[in-house]
Design a protein around this nucleic acid. Structure first.
Lengths: 108, 108
DNA sequence: TATAGTACTATGCAACACAAAGTACTAATC
DNA sequence: GATTAGTACTTTGTGTTGCATAGTACTATA
């Protein structure tokens, strides 16, 4: 029981929401996602990001296309499906409810 | 990949923070904790609460005493140890950082 | 050709919320 | 007194995901 572990636990379920938020704003490939999240003080590791993107794709929330890169290997650009768009709305509501509940409970 | 599962994942690590918050405000027994959390729209199940309280006790964040009840079986009243108090401070900082990061990323 | 940088894939583990089943104590009812 | 109901706590097993690690593949550069 230490703070690093608890932080990791706290991130579960939330990273999914964050990733969809980044992609929802515009087609993005994994490094884009990493950069945007890092800019918001959310560091995500490839061991988490790639399987998560794969799960989201398999669940039909995301779709992707390969784009040749002019400075390295090809990149996988992801975008939201309509199903992913709807799911995003649910995630947003769920997160807001949770955050508000925690705020209400801990700030009294 | 559905909203109920994601909600459950989102709660991981957070419930610990909430429980310590309730107990920090004053000695409490499990049903007290359930009621206070329910009032804040955070429902916690016994299968989660009791093992969590046990983990916190085993990690020396909590201590407890038995109190006879005048309307049923005895109750286990929990309170924070100094170590638990310090850990709470870390949890609060960690949660705030995470919540702020998510807000920054998703509300732009 | 070998190396470096970039991009992506696969696998195994630890931890916790959830679900369910069970034990124990006390008061009320028969 | 025996049984039932309500309250309180304990135990166990499962599924999921972030983390950690190792690996493959593509392109540019030396």
């Amino acid at each position: 029981m230490n703070i690093e572990n608890t932080q990791s636990q706290m991130r579960k379920g939330i990273l999914e929401f964050c990733i969809l938020s980044v992609i929802r704003r515009g087609e993005a490939y994994p490094s884009d996602i990493v950069e945007e999240m890092k800019a918001a003080n959310l560091n995500i590791l490839e061991g988490t990001l790639y399987p998560l993107l794969t799960r989201l794709k398999n669940a039909e929330m995301l779709t992707y296309r390969w784009v040749e890169s002019n400075s390295g290997p090809p990149r996988k650009y992801f975008s939201l499906t309509p199903k992913g768009e709807a799911f995003y709305g649910e995630l947003e509501a769920t997160w807001n409810e949770l955050a508000n509940a925690v705020h209400a409970l801990t700030k009294k």
